[in-house]
Amino acid sequence: MSSDVPGFELPLRLLLAFRVLIDELHAELARQGHAELRPMHGFVMQAIGPRGTTAVELGRVLGVSKQAAGKTVDTLERLGYVERSTDPADTRRKIVRLTAYGMDALERSARVFDALRARWAEELGEDRLRALESDLRRMTPANPWRLDIPGWFGTL
């Protein structure tokens, strides 16, 4: 079966859709008081999660070195999104946890993503958007939480 659309356009359009959504998310987060957040910070904060983690585990989940993860944690700590504390179970380990400010950013992100999805549904039609989402679920792994994107891109 032949197509007049070159095969390379599909991944580029998917990446552009991702970029449009992320850029709009960050523009809105900036308006809501989180101007210093960068797209990579969202991956890091999701990987830290509500219970916290260590720099070693964070690096593993993100697919980057402990040092690269630590550098980003330093930035997020300086900005007030995370804090380090001693692990009560092992005083040699440091646990990275989200602060209230960090949790606020994640909660706002979830609401902004819902609003962006609603806008796409209005523009494309709810049925077409649901079909697109269904098709993407069919063509991708079941678990959408691949937080190793930073390491896969070779950045962070």
Rank of each mutant, 00 (worst) to 15 (best):
A30R: 06
A47Q: 07
G63I: 13
G33C: 03
H41E: 14
V44E: 00
L62A: 09
A30V: 06
Q67D: 07
V64K: 01
E28C: 12
E36S: 15
R51A: 15
L58P: 02
S65K: 04
V44G: 03
T54I: 02
P50V: 14
P39F: 01
Q67N: 09
L29W: 04
R38Y: 09
A35C: 11
A55D: 03
R31D: 13
V44T: 13
G49T: 11
E57A: 11
L58C: 06
A30T: 05
I48A: 08
I48C: 07
G59H: 04
R51G: 12
S65C: 08
V44F: 07
T54F: 01
H34Y: 00
I48T: 07
A35F: 08
P50R: 14
A30W: 04
E28S: 12
R38M: 14
S65Q: 00
R60V: 11
K66D: 07
P39Y: 01
G63L: 10
R38L: 15
R60K: 12
P39D: 08
E36W: 05
R38I: 12
A47H: 06
R60Q: 08
M40C: 08
M45D: 04
A35N: 07
A30H: 04
E57M: 06
R60W: 07
V64P: 02
G42S: 09
K66M: 10
E57S: 10
E57C: 01
H34T: 02
V61G: 03
M45I: 13
Q32W: 01
V44W: 00
P50A: 14
A55R: 02
K66F: 06
M45N: 06
V64I: 14
P39C: 10
R60M: 09
G33A: 07
R51Q: 15
M45L: 15
V61T: 15
Q67E: 10
G33I: 03
Q32F: 02
Q46L: 15
R38E: 14
L29S: 09
L58Y: 01
G33Q: 03
R38N: 09
A35Y: 08
T53A: 05
L29K: 04
L58M: 02
Q32N: 06
Q46N: 14
M40D: 08
S65N: 05
